[in-house]
């Protein structure tokens, strides 16, 4: 719950968080080392100085850390934990469904844990989707198209094998497909961050929600063109939002683009924890205004009502959460640090 300066209570559903283990003990090779170091560079580059973490804490944080950072110090009411396995880089996976679910058990009313699969595993991917649904009742998945898998250095959402998986997701009611367009290295002759496949998949799977994390960055322009045409495509704010501190004008321009093209009902807050913590992001976002010249040029505004949608109401709709009922439930279970 974020309490505004004038006392209004805002429901916050953080659409993009991680519970990872990027520690050297878990790194399988240099790629695992470079992966967490890249995340750390994002953290050190865009965080306010007082929010910086030491590297060892960043590499691996505890169950108490995540609970405190999101819900005690942080304003989140709920958080979606995304699974990013990276089995070629980490011995026990970077972010695992099992490990995250175990952590979330302590406060099941606050977490939504999403699964993940790799369509290149073929039949096994389909079996795995069944297994995730039966054992964890997942409502969404995180797709990382840049994941390495043996000789393959990436895949596309409109690959035939991926379509088989999405057909099954649709059948099983796994409706929220979070997409992260990382660098898809192979084929080398294509743009590594191309977002065209989102267009195909969203058109062919109208009953699924396609939440494109990092609002398609570094292809924001191409993403906006797609999102304006597809009613089931959403923009996750992670990575763009931290610019609110270091480069507020760039953030304002990106926000104006998203409001203009994608619309206020289809933008979702995401902290990308633990790259950034939600406390400062939400505070700064609530107090942020798009400068007049940018707002006028695009004919958009960022009102309190719109901010409330972005911070929680839009994601609550996608995940079928009755916000008033959830507020009452959480009021009866106030945040506390559980004894380990």
């Amino acid at each position: 719950m974020y309490k505004t300066p004038d006392g209004k209570e805002i429901f916050v559903l953080d659409g993009h968080t991680h519970f990872w283990d990027g520690s050297p003990e878990n790194q399988a090779n240099v790629h695992g080392k470079q992966f967490i170091e890249c995340f750390y560079a994002y953290h050190t580059n865009l965080s306010p100085q007082e929010e910086l973490w030491e590297k060892s804490r960043f590499e691996k944080y505890s169950e108490d850390d995540i609970y405190r950072d999101l819900f005690v110090d942080g304003p989140n009411d709920m958080a979606v934990i995304q699974t990013t396995v990276l089995k070629d880089f980490y011995k026990n996976g970077f972010g695992c469904l099992e490990r995250s679910t175990e952590m979330a058990k302590r406060h099941p009313e606050r977490f939504i844990v999403n699964g993940s699969f790799d369509p290149r595993d073929g039949e096994k991917a389909l079996e795995y989707i069944h297994w995730m649904k039966e054992n964890f009742d997942i409502q969404g998945v995180k797709m990382y198209t840049a994941e390495w898998n043996g000789d393959s250095k990436g895949w596309a959402l409109n690959d035939p094998s991926a379509y088989k998986c999405f057909e099954l997701c649709e059948k099983l009611g796994i409706k929220n497909i979070h997409v992260h367009k990382g660098p898809t290295i192979i084929p080398l002759s294509k743009d590594a961050f191309n977002v065209d496949d989102v267009d195909y998949a969203a058109t062919d799977f109208q009953n699924l929600n396609w939440i494109v994390e990092h609002c398609g960055l570094p292809r924001l322009d191409d993403f906006c063109w797609i999102a304006v045409q597809e009613t089931n495509v959403y923009a996750g704010l992670a990575v763009a939002l931290p610019f609110i501190h270091a480069r507020p004008r760039y953030f304002a321009e990106v926000m104006a683009e998203l409001l203009f093209w994608v619309g206020e009902d289809k933008i979702l807050f995401g902290s990308d924890y633990a790259i950034w913590t939600p406390k400062w992001l939400v505070e700064k976002f609530w107090n942020f205004q798009i400068p007049d010249d940018i707002a006028e040029e695009r004919g958009v505004q960022l009102t309190d009502e719109i901010k409330e949608k972005i911070l929680g109401l839009n994601a609550a709709r996608l995940y079928g959460i009755d916000v008033e009922a959830k507020k009452r439930q959480l009021a009866g279970a106030p945040v506390q640090i559980a004894a380990e």
């Binding site: 170091e37 890249c38 750390y40 560079a41 994002y42 050190t44 580059n45 865009l46 910086l52 973490w53 030491e54 590297k55 960055l217 570094p218 292809r219 924001l220 322009d221 906006c224 063109w225 990575v239 763009a240 610019f243 270091a246 480069r247 760039y250 321009e253 990106v254 683009e257 093209w261 040029e297």
Partner: peptide, 25 residues
């Protein structure tokens, strides 16, 4: 404008990442 904003944003991100790539807290 959309194209320019994307490029400028990426440029700012790349400059920032290049400047912190080898730094620790």
């Amino acid at each position: 404008k959309g194209t320019r904003i994307n490029m400028e944003f990426n440029g700012a991100l790349c400059r920032g990442l290049a400047s912190t790539r080898y730094k620790e807290v």
